[in-house]
Design a protein around this nucleic acid. Structure first.
Lengths: 313, 313
DNA sequence: CGTGCAATG
DNA sequence: CATTGCACG
């Protein structure tokens, strides 16, 4: 049309189409750019390159996702053709695993479900794979706490690495569970990974429930005491994972790029792109093999979006 | 079309349009007929006859009903132009009464809400009136039990009678609450009514949670130990209400007519008309004034349908 | 089967 | 503003 848009209108029009390509921060610091999956992904690997595509997604209730005709994990499979999909917050009960497996099984014959047995329909992780893993373990097997009761970890062993799908406990309203999160969970997870590393490299994926740096959150100043951005969690993230050699693959590939993976339902913030990057793919020793670490912000059905990792093998 | 229907098809076609005009009983006893609101209602009262139209409806959650654009209590008002509407199972909390009042107030300026304070969002009765009552009382004020905690009675005093909107406790799965229902509730209610009668006639309305006779239920043989049709409840209904002079107005007007007011969601039984008559308008001394006691089975939005009473005054 | 709550995020 | 389970019917 011939209508001339004012600056504000241009912005909101962009926001309506692809919000994640717009930097919603009022004062973008340094030279930050917004992540754009259409322009910031590398060319495909040459034909015949041995590789593996891993995706991870906090689905916030898998049953609800499967109800949406517009989308299902298998439609994601058609679009992305991944080899392995890690899920968090499946909210699946042990008794419903078989039923859910059927709904998913379309070429992905191997799936492993870690369910909460303390609170039903809470938390829950899974690994869905087209490749049969060498072994699978549920929980950490390490002593100390609720971890292994809440279905927060499942590990699949592949030929050249271990793959962990984990859902790190939220510190909760009023930071009720902050000390548990830091002292018990993060440390146990760190020790668990160290154990695995003794035999093979580890790819750690999932909802790590921490926006590590200011660039990873919409309003850093306003969230200093919010679960997921407390200084305690951020330092724990560094100490327990990064300092042990793990790599935030997205950040390594895209320094200075703002890419969110979580919006939350509470304030309708997906369309204004005001949120957090919580879902990492963080891998040790495999960092050199990463071809692409990417975000798919236009996939709906959850308050998180899926992210992917392409590994050269 | 030119297609010739078989008998079965004709029946199911009737069932699809107006199930309540079809007697779903396999073996209708005696000469029972199905209630048909289009053919079994008397002509309107002559212009100028002083009368009052009272309706009662177990809405199974008023908030949900108000969400349905297709229908609301006020649309019922437009269609039926009642003077007073009694509600049961409003499931309204005390804190939400004002909000709900606003949604309803369209000519009905006087409404009175008895809410459960023991279990929030449970039970709950109301009287919504275009006429201002002389007085209102919540509960029975009689000692003994939970009654007055669960918002199961509200009474409005009009010039020539008391009007009670009540939601009689369901005896529950496994008849857990049967003895409470009989020994405590029914007796207290009966005593309460007797007290009121000392000053004025009483019109008792609501979900009385009892199918009194075999004609009032789809499958009498199969429900002898079902809450609402136990011999205990049926005898209590007779002893505490009918034997004290109260009249089942619908039954008096329509002997041998099968009219249900409750279907339940559990087995999709509204379309097959397989259910119960639970919602009575039972009045003492006013029985001679009843012009019409009727059922509106085509009103959706609840697992009960509304029923009405037209009183000549 | 459907309501409304509670816990959780 | 969503999810799931739960009590209740």
């Amino acid at each position: 049309s011939s209508k001339v848009l004012k600056t504000d209108e241009v912005t909101s029009s962009l926001v309506q189409s692809e919000p994640w390509t717009v930097l919603a921060h009022k004062k973008p610091e340094k030279d930050w750019k917004a992540y754009n999956p259409k322009t910031m992904r590398p060319p495909s690997l040459p034909e015949g390159t041995k590789s593996m595509k891993i995706m991870t997604w906090n689905v916030n209730g898998l049953r609800a996702l499967l109800k949406l005709e517009s989308f299902s994990a298998l439609q994601l499979a058609q679009r992305e053709n991944f080899d392995v999909l890690c899920l968090q917050e499946t909210k699946i009960q042990v008794k419903d695993v078989e039923e859910v497996k059927k709904a998913l099984s379309d070429g992905y014959d191997h799936s492993f479900w870690s369910c909460s047995v303390s609170k039903l329909g809470y938390s829950g992780t899974a690994i869905i794979s087209r490749i049969k893993p060498l072994s699978v373990r549920y929980g950490t097997g390490l002593s100390g706490s609720d971890h292994d009761m809440e279905g927060r970890i499942v590990t699949a062993e592949f030929e050249s690495f271990y793959l962990i799908s984990t859902y790190v406990p939220n510190s909760g309203d009023g930071l009720k569970r902050l000390s548990y999160r830091i002292e018990e969970w993060d440390k146990t997870l760190s020790n668990y990974i160290k154990e695995l590393e003794k035999s093979k490299p580890v790819v750690l994926t999932g909802d790590l429930n921490c926006a590590h740096e200011e660039i990873d959150i919409y309003n850093p100043a306003g969230n200093k005491r919010s679960a997921g951005f407390t200084i305690e969690e951020r330092e724990s993230f560094r100490e327990n994972f990064l300092d042990k050699g793990f790599v935030d693959t997205f950040r390594k590939q895209h320094p200075g790029v703002v890419g969110y993976t979580y919006w939350g339902y509470r304030h309708g913030t997906r369309k204004t792109n005001k949120r957090w990057r919580l879902d990492y793919l963080v891998s040790e020793s495999m960092a050199g093999n990463v071809h692409d670490s990417y975000i798919l912000p236009d996939i709906n059905g959850s308050d998180h979006c899926p992210i992917g990792l392409i590994l050269k093998l």
